[in-house]
Amino acid sequence: MSSFEFASPRTEAEAVELLAAHDGQTAVLAGGTDLVSLLKADIVTPQRVVDITNISSMKGVTSVTGGLLVGALTTLDEILVHPLLAGHPSLAHVADGVHAIQIQSAGTLGGDLCHLPNCWYFRNGYGLLGTLNGESLPAEGRSDFHAILGNQGPAKFVSASRFAPALIALGAKVRIVGPTPDQVTLLPIEYFYVTPKSSDQRVTVLTPGQLVTHVWLPEVSSTLASATYEVLQLEGLDYPLASAGVALEMNGRLVTEARVVLGHVAPTPWVSHDAAEVLKGRSIDEATAQAAGDAAVARATPLAHNEYKVQIARTAVKRALLRAVGQLEGVS
């Protein structure tokens, strides 16, 4: 781990000012479950670490006009039981899939959204694109856990965020402050993620000195059904092989509007308009859920070692849809 300065501000404005120093060569520390490992491996080498966990305005869930404001520091165990989030079961489904009390206690919503890819080439120092002597390692080497969609450019990793698919399906926005304290942006989470085209680009639109402070969730109607289904390889603590977050506007048994978003299958969360189109005007049953799953992966372009993920992604979509309408056996 390289040396760095450390600061622990109490306000968003102070945090943003502290992050702007050193030409933005700074890092945001919340639960530490991702950043500290990256620091140890010298993958992230900031000159200053800004600990945001003492900023009270970024904690908790509050009702605001038209929706909810969820602090970026809201932890997974809070999401699991928060009464204001009871209308968004797809979020508790995600927190419930993180099988470690330690990560549930320390891990935050903002930290999940900004989690860097788990790609083994990236984590071993070969950069986001995983290149060695100009060659793409995921293209030439093992690609078991890499992208099956959106992988035709140089980026082959998968987006790490577990909450983003559910949040995008719910129409959530991310509140970003910085680089100066008076600059506030509210951005649909769908547009928060970008696929890097070169080694100097990042995985989100965040620029140095910017801070994710909150997630805004639109008010849910009584006719909205939502769910997440993650396919996990291990019973213990693990990242999904593929996941799907869905939100359905229902008129009785019929779907009037659907949003289907896949996770861990592409360098960004993957919004499947094809799957949503299949569902419009139909009721959710085994057959329609299967058809939506088929549509979601119809354009998949698996790499040498991850063709198995196509079926897993298809199943994630199918099961998320069935779960949203209470038809998934053995799962509440």
Binding site: F6, S8, L29, G32, T33, D51, T53, Q102, A106
Partner: peptide, 20 residues
Amino acid sequence: TVLLDGKAVYACSVLAHAAV
């Protein structure tokens, strides 16, 4: 694993300065 304000956390992922 240690308890930080009563909650279980991985001590390897907590910076000592952040435990103040």
